[in-house]
């Protein structure tokens, strides 16, 4: 099949294509899912940002 007589190499060739298709379908189906952050995550994110901003403001010249 496909000019490849060895089963293990043929299997690898087919798996490469199959896994790519799986990844593409997975990404497509889940394209718009899991986008909303939970309250907890939003709070955590805000907390770290505030802490970092506070620290950066205290430092002359900032990070870069």
């Amino acid at each position: 099949m496909l000019g490849i007589p060895d089963v293990s190499v043929l299997l690898a060739y087919i798996l490469v294509i199959a896994l790519t298709l799986f990844g593409a379908v997975y990404g497509f189906i889940k394209w718009n899912k899991d986008g909303d952050l939970s309250e907890e995550e939003l709070e955590t994110e805000k907390f770290w940002m505030e802490e970092e901003t506070e620290l950066e403001e205290e430092v002359d010249g900032g990070m870069v």
Binding site: T20, G23, G27, F28, K30, N32, K33, D34
Partner: peptide, 12 residues
């Protein structure tokens, strides 16, 4: 996680 879902498509 949404960005990671989308990245699976592109990455694969």
């Amino acid at each position: 996680d949404q960005e990671l879902n989308r990245a699976v498509f592109i990455g694969a």
